[in-house]
Nucleic acid binder design. Sequence first.
RNA 1: GACCCCAUCGUCUAGCCCGGUCCAGGACAUCGCCCUUUCACGGCGGUAACACGGGUUCGAAUCCCGUUGGGGUCGCCA
Length: 439
Amino acid sequence: MSVRVRFAPSPTGFLHIGSVRTALFNWLYARHTGGTFVLRIEDTDAARNTEQSLRTILDGLKWLGLDWDEGPEKGGSCGPYFQSQRADLYRKRVRQLLDAGIAYEREGAIRFKMPRTPITVPDLIAGNVTRELADRELQDPDFVIVRSDGNPVFHFVNVVDDLEMKITHVIRGEDHLSNTPKHIALFRAFGVEPPKYAHIPMILNPDGTKMSKSDPDPQKARLASLQTYLNEGYVPEAVRNYLCLLGWSPKDNREILPIDDVIRLFDLPQILRANARFDLAKLTWINAEYIRAMSLERFIELARPFVGGHDDPKVLGLVKEKVKLLKELPDWTSYFFTDDYPFDPEAVKKSCSAPQTSERLTKLADRFATVNSWDVAGIETALKALAAELGVKTGELIHPCRVAVSGKSAGPSLYHMLEVLGRDRVLARLRRAVDRSKK
RNA sequence: GACCCCAUCGUCUAGCCCGGUCCAGGACAUCGCCCUUUCACGGCGGUAACACGGGUUCGAAUCCCGUUGGGGUCGCCA
């Protein structure tokens, strides 16, 4: 029988990074097995659902390349894929339990008669988990499936949908493990075998606390939302690669690997059972690796939203190897697009404090004016020749020159930078720097 | 409080199922050196872990029990 898995988010607020990882593992398993990845929107909480949030979910999944086979914008034979449109189905299933005497009404709500004997969850990751009842459940293990306002609750609709949508494997966060006996009992009450379960460990904050979008600490709240990574200039293939490594490993010491390799190697039983902490530093490293390795075309495409129209391929090509986050781009490139760039005081102090700086820069400008062809080789030859004539190390010219034309002490190779800047601007900037220093 | 899950360097992990090849391997971070026009990249090297206590065994990171610590669940939230 063909594998059918699903990702079932509720459209309330931002997309949680933990949810994204759950979606990713479902997607990986579907692609690994040649199965079907279903996207179902659990929008039963009308008060909290927003259209905006739905967009965020769909865009987030697309951004990461997690395409779904059935669901919103896709359709499929088990629709509708919004719970808000499946009320009739739920009503029918409630009726079924009521008629069978497995559910009953009390205080306006409909409750499910939970079996009194413990239920074992055969979990593909955690093993067999038998949960004894918590002391508060001891008096009354039954639970509400339809509220007094007539709306069915999560546990119920979740099971009904998984059943109707013929889901074969439920891959979800470990926070659902303790509730799974309820779900299994429901499946059995409907006379069907429950799907296979795989509860994946949680992703925690760097300090080991739970990741929450509503954490009072804004730093942690930001960490929990996928949007943050998009805004900061992480690239989707890096985020996806990093997420794969949280709770799963190719076991061959590779850290960076193509998604096709992950799909091929991925399987449920080898997922780790322990929670993992989110490590921004490692994500950032992976991000830089991906940026360096990607084509210039891809880089420009991803960089565009961050550079405000300044997407000159020559400029971006110069900094591609330097950038860790796309958000840094304006910082690396702004002096290519404006003459009004800031001077880093530290850089000025460090590189331009020699008394001969002005004289040297003037001579450098004069020399550059005579260069025949303004390219890397010509620039380098001219600069080195001047340094030799002056009897100074090339660095004595290079560093002040860099600061003069860019305002910074760090940047691309100087010769390449000057070439892209163009002779006119370089000369103007060198002379302007000299004037500046005289004031 | 009850119940469930988990426990290898600061972090992610390999090894654990099928005890010996592990005085525990890789990566990020960190420190030092090299390369170098800057910053990165790259290269080389260092610091750094089997939570603790009992067993079982000739032998335990690997199996068992307990303790501690972390996480989760016990809603007419999802």
